[in-house]
Design a protein around this nucleic acid. Structure first.
Lengths: 330, 330
DNA sequence: GTCACAGTATGAATCGTTTCATTCGTTGTG
DNA sequence: CACAACGAATGAAACGATTCATACTGTGAC
């Protein structure tokens, strides 16, 4: 493997000069730069990032921990983050927690060992103590898709309580009264906040919200929840369902409408959350609550790398109702 | 920042012993192990991966370059790869080429600087020379979702020509004769192979296949292609469309069915490719050609890390027709 | 009492890059 | 002609973990 030393020898300059050519060519005489570049090309030299990092004490990577990369919402967040990070000369390491503490923790360990410049994370639950410790070790964190007023972490979030409120209010406006929220695990802030918002909106009109728990926020879990609802007596079913995300909603559609005998929205109105690309093309075009995914990702990077910002800046975007056939009828 | 040296001092042992506790505790006396662990915990020591890598000469990461991480097919491939890699103690760095040479190349540069253990890649076009050079530098590659008989690289692929054949044959079986393939860029092997397979199947029955080019394989591009088709005279439209992937197909559905006046499958039958989760829940449940995404990812990792395998093993999976309403009618 | 040996622990050398205090050489000025 | 000043290049030190040849200790055998 060829190193700066080899390049230096080949170009008949010192290693320091090679390094300067690489990092601040303006301090090196043009013809020397030329000469060194020629040697680099001839020998096929490739900088060793590990050595560079070791010296620098810090890597040029940002860790991103999401709940589920298969959820297009998070895929989009990741893309937004990646793009902005690249502009700053950083790259993004994406890790999946699969909504599991254990996996989240393992990934944070890895990120710590890599001395990432910072971590963007959608915590599974209360990961704050762990993140505090990391910050003491010089690794800052930005909470993504998650409010954090109490703590001293930056955060980028969409108001999930308001989102839940918007979704439920919309269902109520359509004349529905037997509301259910499908989602889980309940410990996820996304789920509990959206539920709370829905309950608030419902309570104002004197109705309650049933909570139908799932093990995860996936299409498959949505399908299973749908089957459980189908197993009930017709009179015992909700007349409106608010799914905690679009994956669940699409799964629900599959079992309720396609294998079941439920008409949407006639029998049950359905609204999802995130407004992923696929929602608009669903069997019954899916109403949803839109979040600016890519913007969330890029903003999180800005907060992490921004030098001017205070240690606890909170950016909050507003969710937006996108009403389609699944709640409006034809 | 606390280092092995600090731990050693705190535990009153040598740095070598600390390292041994970390890496081969069986060679260290139990009580010493105990003592060192206590110091590690007390000081909050975290191993510096850069230093470790520098010494080792190689990282415990695998680079994965996909065309588009927002495509659930690739998200699933990534997950499959990640899971298998974790079993071997490796992690996966996912990078997006967005079907652009430039970006692909930049990511490969980065991976090379990081001395990754290997690269899994779905090349944008002919990236073989570049990959050969990387192999000479000790970084092996496995081609993903891409045949490679000519070269000496391992590959994991699904027979795209056969997939195209299956899709077209199915459309022809439904009595369609004016076939079109929507996809692009044409330089992508995925696109050209699927087109070729479709043309072969069509030619056998004496019909041709129109090629409707798109700039990318995305929902948005599908929408645009749909609009272009809608702009045509009714009599000039195809009666069956084979979309090069499900994203395009879902975009086509959106413009053809939801904003346009086309009935699917009555006026135009539509089939996609990949059978992503969302295909089954589409406005018209989408027929598709299924590929075992997660298996592709995990197999690629096996090929890369497998010690026994020859340098040019080729794993090929068979695509599978999944016929739904978008080609079958109700 | 000596020797061999196993079980542990040691610490200097190493990986490849960057940094920075120095040195070198040239030009311009008084 | 001496000296200041500046641009350019130098090379040793440092980053932190791992490795490996060596040293130490105590036990059992002869």
């Amino acid at each position: 493997m060829v190193s700066v030393r080899d390049v230096a020898a080949d170009a008949r300059v010192s290693v320091g000069t090679v390094s300067n050519v690489l990092n601040r060519p303006e301090r090196v005489a043009p013809e020397t730069v030329e000469k060194v570049h020629a040697s680099i090309a001839r020998l096929g030299f490739v900088r060793n990032d590990a050595a560079r990092q070791l010296r620098a004490g810090r890597s040029k990577s940002i860790g991103l921990v999401v709940l589920d990369i298969r959820n297009p919402f998070f895929a989009e967040v990741a893309r937004g983050a990646e793009e902005r990070a690249a502009e700053h000369g950083y790259s993004v390491l994406v890790a999946n927690s699969d909504e599991k503490h254990q996996r989240e923790s393992t990934h944070l360990d890895l990120f710590e060992e890599q001395r990432v410049a910072g971590v963007l994370i959608t915590p599974v639950q209360e990961a704050l103590p762990r993140l505090e410790r990391m910050r003491e070790h010089g690794i800052p964190a930005v909470l993504v898709d998650r409010e954090s007023h109490d703590s001293r972490f930056c955060s980028v979030a969409v108001d999930d309580v308001m989102g839940g409120r918007i979704a439920a209010a919309h269902l109520l406006d359509q004349g529905r009264r037997r509301l259910a929220l499908v989602g889980g695990p309940a410990a996820l802030r996304q789920v509990s906040d959206r539920l709370r918002g829905a309950q608030d909106a419902a309570a104002e009109r004197g109705v309650g919200v049933e909570f139908i728990a799932t093990d995860a926020l996936s299409v498959e879990e949505g399908r299973l929840a749908g089957e459980r609802i189908l197993a009930r007596d017709r009179s015992d079913r909700p007349d409106a369902i608010f799914a905690a995300n679009d994956l669940l909603a699409l799964g629900l559609l599959q079992s309720l409408v396609m294998t079941g005998d439920v008409r949407v929205p006639d029998d049950i109105a359905l609204i999802g959350y995130d407004d992923i690309d696929f929602a608009a093309a669903a069997v019954i075009p899916l109403s949803s609550v839109r979040q600016p995914a890519a913007l969330i990702g890029s903003t999180a990077v800005d907060l992490l790398l921004g030098s001017s910002h205070p240690a606890d800046e909170h950016v909050r975007f507003e969710p937006e109702l996108v009403a389609r056939a699944s709640t409006l009828g034809t």
